[in-house]
Design a protein around this nucleic acid. Structure first.
Length: 345
DNA sequence: AACGCGGGGCT
DNA sequence: AGCCCAGCGTT
């Protein structure tokens, strides 16, 4: 465990940050608790997710799964349902697996050691440091996108944040200014400063508590940091679906565990050609994801005969649901929108 | 080291 | 249209 690596000049910056945080820190629900379970859940939910976007999901999740035991006893279906709309669905599956790890390996008590926390599915170096420092007094920086941005600007540091070494590079810088015994507050203070003041674009440098210490600001080069060379380039993906309708009922199946929308529900990808006379029309939906440009083509079939509808479901191994039920299923966004158009126009 | 993985907000 | 967000697991 790294300790006491402070540098007096830099430590002064950390103290200023803590002072700013004590006055201007955000009033967030998970700041009111020291329950490691809740802190863990909130850290997972807010990976790559803005606070505003995930806040309702956090409340619903904690309300339904208030502790590790409740979560471990729930079905993965229900956990996924509570993740609906958040994205990065493997997080939900990992949380569920981790709850079983806690039950089996740690007797149902959330582990206190850094290495044990890190051993949980879905918990990486960032999350382990965050939970360990906030709940158990650990002295490690929780280096996330905010750390990259704030630290690269303060030190006018052009280390490429898209490389593997960025985490340890900025960890070392953070350790220089992290006051002993205050890591939990320091980590949250960095997040708030990064989100409220030292924003990616149009930062409020004029009111930043650290602007006198910020090299990039002094050089008027804040916009040059952080440096990031690797760009994500979306690839094209086309999906074909059969929306098979009988009254307000239709067919669904489960996606597999590969590719996008892991284990969410979807329409059948194809049906036997003998039903093609029932095809009414076809809809094309364009949908942009971070890593994919999707083209979703949905052929609409209407089956009049109940018997034929049930046979079709039987043959393909599909589930029959109605629209009201479907609202309770975890559908990917484009399919959910398609349903709304079909049933609520 | 590189890649896959969502959805939403902002400029 | 592009960028970023309380990152992690897999290959």
């Amino acid at each position: 465990m790294k300790t006491n690596k402070q540098n007096p000049d830099f430590l002064c910056i950390g103290v200023k940050l803590l002072k700013w945080f004590s006055v201007h820190g955000r009033d967030l629900p998970f700041r009111k608790t020291d329950d490691p379970y809740k802190i863990w859940i909130c850290e997972i939910i807010f990976q790559q997710t803005r606070i505003q976007q995930g806040l309702n999901h956090y409340h619903r999740f904690i309300n339904r799964f208030p502790d590790v035991q409740t979560l471990a006893e729930a079905s993965s279906d229900e956990v996924l349902l509570h993740w609906k709309g958040l994205g990065y669905y493997s997080r939900a599956l990992n949380i569920h697996k981790a709850s079983h790890q806690i039950m089996e390996n740690f007797g149902g008590v959330f582990p206190q050691e850094y290495d044990d926390i890190l051993s949980l599915k879905g918990v990486g170096k960032y999350t382990a440091a965050a939970v360990h420092s906030i709940c158990f007094g650990g002295h490690l920086p929780a280096v996330d996108g905010n750390f990259y941005r704030v630290l690269s600007r303060i030190f006018a540091d052009d280390y490429d944040i898209s490389t593997t070494g960025a985490f340890s590079h900025f960890s070392s810088l953070a350790l220089l200014m992290m006051p002993l015994g205050k890591a939990g507050e320091f980590n949250q203070a960095m997040m708030d400063l990064g989100s409220e003041i030292c924003r990616p674009r149009n930062p409020y440098c004029e009111i930043c508590p650290l602007n006198a210490d910020c090299t990039a600001f002094q050089l008027k080069k804040v916009h040059e940091f952080p440096k990031k060379l690797k760009k994500i380039k979306p690839t094209e993906l086309q999906l074909q679906y059969a929306f098979v309708q009988h009254g307000d009922h239709f067919l669904i199946r489960r996606r597999n565990e590969s590719s996008i929308w892991k284990k969410l529900y979807e329409f059948p990808t194809e049906i036997d050609e003998k039903y093609k006379t029932y095809e009414l029309d076809s809809t094309e939906i364009k949908h942009k994801l971070t890593h994919r440009n999707l083209t979703v083509i949905i052929r609409h079939f209407i089956i009049k005969s109940q018997e034929e509808f049930e046979n079709l479901a039987e043959e393909g191994g599909f589930h029959i649901v109605d629209y009201e039920q479907s609202a309770a299923k975890s559908f990917p966004k484009p399919l959910e929108n398609y349903l709304k158009i079909r049933f609520e126009k």
